[in-house]
Design a binder for these strands. Structure first.
Lengths: 239, 239
DNA sequence: AAGTCTTTTTGATGTACGTCAAAGATAGCA
DNA sequence: TGCTATCTTTGACGTACATCAAAAAGACTT
């Protein structure tokens, strides 16, 4: 499907606080509008970018939900992250000028296209933007450190609790319900992300359910005992 | 132990090609000397920085060998990386102005201290440095993506092969022997990095040894069949 | 509204790696 | 040069999660 593209301004975007630096004046703000050249709509199931593709831009998610994944030579897939509104994807492409992972929309989505050349040019002009870019990249490094802890040291129960608590926090930051939500990804995708098989994910959901911690109906999740869930998370949180 | 500190210049450093951007003239080079303010010696076993410590600088390793690790609330340790000469550590500290991991010297080491403020100031002046900083951070993100694949999808044998092949490549890039080397870290530290127990690491070394792929005598490793090892690595290499 | 496809759940069984334990090997130190 | 302390190897056994399989629940199509 062909993606629509059109112009838009950050200065009037309600997600500004999530993906743009805070604390600079009106003038600077309008200059920063240049970071985003266009928007792009992505249909559910479609790729935003894929492994091997030439890197040109970072993408700020306006609406929708993505997963990123890497693949091994023999075809095994590892989901490396799930991204939602206000988050930035594409950082993997900077180092070698081409992407090393795939980004797939898990629901119809819209992203702001930010050509990386523009970002670098504007970064030199606006220290606040420069700092922001550095922090976004560092945050991703710290998140992945947390994922290494999760994948290397934690039990299935701890992994899934961690996953849910993290999701809840991010929904909270976006003003959505923390107690009830719909998972945008399959059991298999959750499993891939957490280094588990889909059956184990399903069984662990069932276990939480039996313990009255959550209510599960397919992809519909209701959090009954958020504290019990947080109790299960015994490691630095993976944002 | 008190660490010695003294001044030094990048422009005359033989590791320049590893940790500094390439392709700019003599004048720029001398300006870039400002990135490094001092050097610092770290004794084996000592911390370069630790979790919670205020972030001020990135460090370029001049000599020696480091491990970085994160810890969970209940004290489990996850090694997140091993770093050698020419590599940059401390990127985790940027996002929250304090470090979230520990960096320990596995042998006596010397690092170049690069205050991050200087880096940011000079980055605005020299696009080539700016790009370099971005690439270093992106490279770390891509490396960690690879580690997620390793930890989430690979068998003990594949993990260790991956680890060894990666080590060999980095030794090669430094002009050291690829066929014979001494491990700077314990079986337990390798295990922590690879999401395995030390016994499993030891057993896997023994297995390779029985198969004639490597020769193991404690920490002394001799690679007999590098191709057999590469054969075992069925996924994007984790640099 | 029936029929097909996909996803999720649940059960039975298998296995790769973990755990526990003890014996070498090496390094550091008096 | 022997004595500790630490690290590594190896064996026996246990277990958390994977695998295989089939039923149940939705979702999509016509």
């Amino acid at each position: 499907m062909k993606a629509e593209t059109f112009k838009v301004a950050c200065s009037s975007c309600n997600l500004r606080e999530l993906c743009m630096p805070v604390g600079f004046d009106q003038n600077d703000m309008h200059k920063l509008d240049e970071v985003v050249t266009t928007r792009k709509k992505i249909k559910q199931g479609d790729l935003l970018f894929e492994n091997g593709e030439t890197f040109t831009s970072l993408y700020a998610i306006r609406t929708g939900f993505f997963k990123t994944s890497v693949a091994s030579e023999d075809g095994r897939e590892q989901v490396t992250g799930f991204q939602m509104a206000g988050e930035i994807i594409g950082l993997d492409g900077i180092v070698n000028d081409h992407h090393t992972c795939n980004a797939v929309a898990l629901e119809d989505a819209e992203v702001c296209v930010m050509p990386f050349d523009h970002i670098e040019d504007l970064s030199r002009e606006f220290p606040v933007l420069q700092k922001h870019v550095h922090k976004i990249m560092s945050r991703e490094i710290v998140r992945e450190n947390g994922m290494m802890m999760l994948l290397g040291n934690m039990s299935a129960e701890e992994r899934l609790a961690n996953f849910l608590v993290n999701l809840i926090q991010r929904l909270f930051a976006r003003g959505q319900s923390q107690s009830e939500f719909i998972l945008r990804m399959s059991r298999e995708e959750i499993g891939s992300y957490l280094g588990l098989k889909l059956e184990t994910v399903s069984r662990t959901f069932s276990k939480y359910s039996e313990e009255g911690i959550i209510e599960v109906k397919q992809r519909h999740i209701k959090i009954l005992k958020p504290d019990a869930l947080k109790q299960l998370v015994k490691s630095p949180n993976c944002n």
